[in-house]
Amino acid sequence: MTTTTFPVAAAPAARTGNKLGLLFANLYVLGMCGTIGGAYLFQFGLWEYPCPMCLLQRMFMLLSALGPALIIHRSRKGTVTTRDTASGWGWAIVCALLGSTVSITQVLMHIVPPDPGYAGALFGLHLYTWAAITFAAAVLAAGIALVLTHESEPLDAATATPALRGLGTVSLYLLAFFAVSNLVACFFLQGFHWQMPGDPTGYAFFTDLF
């Protein structure tokens, strides 16, 4: 029996658009991590404890970053299919939209005067307002990336320059760091209680212990 072989099309060479697409994925992950990092400054620098809805917004930021993180991870290993690229950005949009509902709900909870809002403000806006802006920007960014998938998908491992590869390492490690550190911080904040108070005043694990 003879075997028929078909010529396999060579993978297209990476162009600037493909590199920029990979950079964009990194910036998305770093943007989400940076936002959570800003919340950490309030939590650990100013001792302003995150409320349950604040924690939910962090969750949706982490979940949203998973999509581009998958794209970055796949691009380091081998070929990133168009399917992976599209589903990664689509996932980012879904999570960012759901996260924005949490942020907007919290804005509406405190919008009626004379409610002073929850916790401190940064440049005149509370953190949940900044989160709503972040989620809106994330939806726009991921949507643009989806529209430009054909021009900007990372293709394969050869797309990344050494600098982009290093940036990818940083992005993925940062995402893992914020996922694990939020788990630890939330455990200390909530302790062994199933529910959290709406306005936490301390780390329940330690206050229960001592």
């Binding site: 349950p52 924690l55 939910l56 969750m59 982490l62 979940l63 998973l66 993180a69 995402l175 893992a176 996922a179 694990v180 939020n182 788990l183 939330c186 455990f187 909530q190 199933w194 529910q195 959290m196």
Partner: peptide, 13 residues
């Protein structure tokens, strides 16, 4: 409850 959710997110990562 939120701790468990963050644990699930860590598993997603």
């Amino acid at each position: 409850m939120y701790t468990l959710l963050f644990l699930l997110i860590a598993l997603c990562v």
